[in-house]
Simulated scan of single mutants.
Amino acid sequence: MMGKKHNTGTLRLRPDYEALNLPSAQIHFNGFSKTVGRSDGAFRSVFRGRSMELEDLREYVAGDNLRDIDWKSSSRTGEILVRNYVADKKRRFMFVVDTGKNMLGAMPDGHSKTAAGIITAASAAYMCTRAGAEYQILGSMEAGRQERYSCGPGFLEASLRRLEGCYSMSVKLAGRKKALLSDEFNMQLRRITSTPMRSVSLFLITDLYGVLTLDDRLIRSICSVRDLYVLLMEDADWGSSHIYNAQTGVAVSEYLSYSSRMANEISDKKAALLTKAMRNLRACGASYDIVRSTQDITESIIKVLNRGVG
Rank of each mutant, 00 (worst) to 15 (best):
Q26G: 06
D268C: 11
R83H: 07
I302L: 02
R292S: 11
Y244P: 01
G31C: 02
E142W: 07
T8Q: 13
L54C: 06
K178E: 13
G308Q: 08
T213I: 14
N280G: 14
S45R: 05
R44I: 15
A116M: 12
N264C: 08
K269R: 14
L13K: 08
T129Q: 15
E234M: 13
M233V: 02
T99F: 10
P108K: 09
I266H: 01
T8R: 12
V225Y: 03
D235I: 02
T10D: 11
L218I: 15
S33H: 09
S240Y: 09
D227F: 00
D56Q: 11
L231H: 02
N245C: 13
G31W: 01
K5Y: 09
S75W: 07
T275R: 14
N306R: 02
I80T: 12
S287E: 00
A174P: 03
Y229G: 01
I118G: 09
M52H: 11
D98N: 05
L104M: 10
G175H: 11
T114Q: 10
R191C: 09
E265C: 03
T294S: 12
V309Q: 10
A42L: 12
L256F: 03
G165S: 00
A271H: 13
A272K: 14
N264Y: 12
G63S: 00
V252C: 08
G110F: 13
F185N: 05
E164T: 13
S194Y: 05
A277S: 12
P196S: 11
K90C: 15
F93W: 04
I137Q: 02
R307D: 03
I219D: 04
R58L: 04
S159H: 08
I302A: 01
I290A: 07
E18I: 12
A251C: 01
A62I: 15
N7L: 09
V61H: 10
V96K: 13
L202Q: 01
M127L: 12
Y149H: 12
R92H: 13
F47D: 00
Y126H: 10
S74H: 05
D237P: 07
Q146G: 15
V97E: 07
R67A: 11
K5M: 12
S221N: 09
A283H: 15
E147P: 11
L13W: 12
G100P: 08
I266E: 01
T8A: 14
T195F: 09
G110L: 07
